[in-house]
Design a protein around this nucleic acid. Structure first.
Lengths: 355, 355
DNA sequence: GTGAAAGCGCTAACAC
DNA sequence: GTGTTAGCGCTTTCAC
């Protein structure tokens, strides 16, 4: 006994607004008023309360507060895999914006997919979060999973959900990247460098953004008068979106022996894998083949050469998502769909087409 | 009007255990009992309740529950910068372990340093989290900041805090990496490859683990009969621990013109910067200089060549931290300090010393 | 095994 | 302005 490792046992009875009220010679309601600065309280009393709050380092109990007014000032964030720097950036900027707005955030890493996302929704509902933000996972799918949609709709009877993707059959707001525009920027860049044999590596067509990119790719080819060659499109690989996936997919692409001067990778991980593969084959980037990708995470600065990539202005992106979320939490109607515009960051991995 | 964007307005009155109780023909207390499976309830009644819970997809209000029993089954996590994959890995594994144990987690990204960490502590206290886990930030410092220590001690009157570093003057538990051992593994590896001119790049000596590594480095040199040369130790740089920092520090090191066959970088970011710098100078890795580092994040797989790095077994690390946290939350006394052992992952960035 | 009832610590009418 | 008083939706004695 003796030593305490923090709290418990000694557990100095938690102080409440009643204690503060008594000592300040005011009513609990008044304490509550100064704490939430809802109504005006006479300066003198206010100061007495504030002094005591400071003296005891009093912090109002958020549980009691939430129970009483049915607002928790909390946001639940469900994300796919925080280890992917794209999600890390998003979580980061969302958390930042939320904290600024006075909201706390729950972290829910659904690495195990749909069933886990569903489970997290239940737990967030138990916590009575004011709103949930879902980044990645089910909301990235082209065709929304019926079971999940049902689940979300059930949750949305009481808690609004906003996503960075979409969920057909629900009314959740979304703030989404303009994937077509992103591909357009990449293609314009490559075409202007004289590339006419541009491969696509990575991604699943069942993912909305990947699909949209492909559509735009074909569109751009057509406009440029270049024939579409399905042989240089490597999608739906087993480990796609990852380093290994990029390597493998690129390897298979090379085996086809098609002419190729540029590769568009589905994300920075994939691009890094592609570059490893090219290096192993003695192919130089960008002299022999240019490599470009999406997300502009720090991965694109770490590789050598740095990767030309599409940036989303994560800070603004996160802010928009959180703003939409808070509006939804407050019952303010707003645009169901907002689009964030990507921009191109040119690095050394892309250069003029050979010859 | 009409369309709803999620909850509000339509806001079908939240269902409670009273509703369930009435419909099941039992008392609210009984519903509570089956929900928390605290006492035995006759199978028949139990089933009736469970059926209704399912029918209405009822989720007990965690606020009310927490208010009533003074346990929130939540953990507050304060971290330095989630974009750093080391922290992402840690957060991830902690969150996973917490979820398995039935705890929800709060995400607090204190990128703005001490004052923000302090602010988050207050907010977590308001939420009455059962325990807070602090990963990085103030707890990494060699000499603990007095003000912060005071703050933590004040919080610890009611909420235990566990860290992955240390905080002198507090009684918080910690689960820490054996930094000395980590350096030992790296040095053994390099020495066995014949290196005798080993530089250190990156880190601040005010950071505990960095300091410990330096101590161990000197120790190993002494044992190997190699003179310690402060000229090949590049620490306390302005942007250290980052890609740019690594580049700059390596650049300065090269300018000294000292003989050098290997470099130990303080983390994977730094190592990547070092490799960029070496590449720019036409120095080959590992033929001319070997590069090794700490953390074994995926960065060490992305660079070319891959980086020999120190791994911490994040899953186990996270599990230990969370276990300690939950014990602390339950008032179970346990070891104040636990050490996690690092291991060496060899990749292509390290090879025999030249000549 | 089960119900009644008293809180848990706030907020929000409602009076004054 | 400010105090009084109900709740908010649970858990938990305490009886039976």
């Amino acid at each position: 006994m003796g030593m305490q490792q923090g709290a418990k046992a000694g557990e100095s009875k938690e102080i409440t607004i009643y204690d503060i009220a008594r000592e300040a010679g005011v009513s609990p309601a008044t304490v509550s008023r100064v704490l939430s600065s809802s109504t005006n309280v006479r300066q003198e009393k206010k100061q007495r309360v504030l002094d005591l709050v400071d003296k005891y380092q009093f912090r109002p109990n958020a549980l009691a507060r939430g129970l009483a007014d049915a607002k928790t000032r909390s946001i639940g964030m469900i994300t796919a895999d925080i280890r992917n720097p794209f999600y890390a950036e998003m979580l980061m900027s969302c958390e930042l914006a939320a904290a600024e707005a006075g909201y706390v955030t729950y972290l829910c890493n659904a690495i195990k997919g749909k069933s886990q996302e569903s489970m997290f929704l239940d737990r967030l509902k138990e916590q009575r979060v004011d709103v949930v933000i879902q980044i990645g996972g089910q909301v990235d799918e082209m065709v929304s999973d019926m079971t999940y949609v049902e689940k979300v709709n059930q949750i949305m009877k009481t808690i609004p959900v906003v996503t960075t993707g979409r969920l057909d059959g629900t009314k959740c707001r979304s703030v989404r990247i303009d994937a077509m525009k992103a591909m357009e920027l990449l293609m314009e860049h490559l075409l202007s460098l004289g590339h006419r044999h541009i491969g696509l590596v990575g991604g699943k067509l069942s993912v909305l953004s990947t699909y949209e990119k492909l559509v735009q790719y074909r569109q751009m080819l057509t406009e440029a008068g270049i024939a579409y060659d399905p042989d240089i499109i490597m999608v739906d690989g087993a480990y796609t979106y990852s380093l290994e996936g990029g390597y493998e997919e690129m390897d298979q692409l090379l085996q086809k022996g098609k002419e190729l001067t540029a590769v568009i990778a589905i994300n920075d991980f994939t691009a890094a894998g592609v570059m490893h593969c090219l290096a192993d084959h003695g192919i130089r980037v960008p002299e022999d083949i240019s490599v470009v990708s999406y997300d502009n995470t720090y991965i694109s600065e770490i590789t050598f050469p740095g990767i030309t990539s599409i940036d989303y202005n994560y800070e603004e992106f996160g802010r928009k998502v959180v703003t939409a979320a808070i509006e939804a939490a407050q019952g303010v109607e707003g645009e169901l769909l907002q689009i964030v515009s990507p921009s191109l960051v040119v690095r050394k991995s892309s250069g003029p087409a050979p010859r």
